[in-house]
Design a protein around this nucleic acid. Structure first.
Lengths: 186, 186
DNA sequence: CGTTTTACATTACAGTCGTGATGTCAAAGC
DNA sequence: GCTTTGACATCACGACTGTAATGTAAAACG
């Protein structure tokens, strides 16, 4: 056999190509051939690592969640030890907003997956779990109804940022305004 | 020529079929053939009334906005004359939430169109205008930043209702909670 | 050293897609 | 009444899709 290869490395390489295609040309342009071409490979390689297209899509969705998780961890670490709950929540919520090109790309993929999941229950399950985990975490640092509201608010802001309906300043203002109403004005 | 026919009637007939397909099988299942079949017609008819697929999609998007507008008007009229701002806003915002099968169908189509618009600037324009109009109207009855936040919150709640992440009671609770924080608890 | 197994590439297939061309038929206009 | 025209139906086209089958080369393993 040829050089033994790290399969998850190849899979993330493919998933990254997928996300580039999805971010630039929409999820409907995500085909085995386009993804393969973007990855500089052939459809055979893609087929080798993902038996089916749905498998590939599902993996890409997990990569996006992974990105968000990593960014949240980094943002939280940047706060230093034992930060105030409000700062912690703000830092995490901000990572859900598409405020730079990196997060915009992830956001577009995430949005596309919402539509994709609308007719694929098992994909929807993955998303649901992610949202619930986040809300439960938020709920450890603020009243539960407020955590619920905050998460929905952030999701809506993300949507409007993605469509250029709201500016970054507007979205951050709305986020801070809501945090003020929960934690009290500083 | 055959019986002269009302073109907009035919167009809405086609658009309704499109929305049924999109709601049940996702926007990616929306093809000229599927829509035609759902409408009990042929692709020739669809082509006759919409030169191109994009034209058809755009028209369907306008139909969805129309539905929402009609529902809002009905809900507002049901309030009786000169309602309190809070009640008015609540009635309108509620129409944006997919709380019954009718609104769920529209919501799914709307969501699918968000993804569709992500790579079609002129479609995004239509959506943006709708959101801005709504926010401006809200802003006539509440502080502007609150209107901005409310709209994003409602959009986020709609998303989570659509994916069955939040229950109707949870979403309405979040909406009322926010309205309380703006207008004061009754 | 030979065999097996892994990692890919290539090709083929059946299906669907949007679109354009062409055909048919009935009513409106002269 | 004949011609024009609008309202569709039908069919063909090239492009694209996901997937299955097959081929090939190389490294690991006995």
């Amino acid at each position: 056999m040829p050089k033994r290869v790290d399969p998850t490395e190849r899979r993330t390489l493919i998933a990254d190509a997928l996300m580039r295609v999805a971010a630039e040309r929409g999820l409907e342009a995500v085909s085995l051939r386009h993804v393969a071409a973007e990855a500089g490979a052939t459809t055979g390689l893609v087929q080798h690592y993902f038996g089916t297209k749905d498998e590939m899509m599902l993996f890409a969705l997990e990569v996006v969640s992974g990105h968000i998780g990593e960014r949240m961890e980094a943002a939280v670490n940047a706060l230093g030890p034992s930060p105030a709950p409000r700062d912690l929540i703000r830092a995490m919520a901000t990572q859900l907003l598409p405020l730079d090109e990196q997060r915009r790309a992830d956001g577009r993929v995430g949005l596309a997956f919402f539509a994709y999941a609308a007719t694929r229950p098992h994909v929807a399950e993955v998303q649901r779990r992610g949202s619930e985990g986040l809300r439960d975490f938020f709920a450890t640092m603020m009243p539960e109804p407020a955590a619920t509201t905050l998460l929905a608010l952030v999701e809506g802001l993300a949507l409007y940022l993605l469509t250029d309906t709201y500016s970054a300043a507007t979205a951050l203002g709305a986020l801070d305004g809501y945090l003020d109403s929960v934690f009290g004005r500083p």
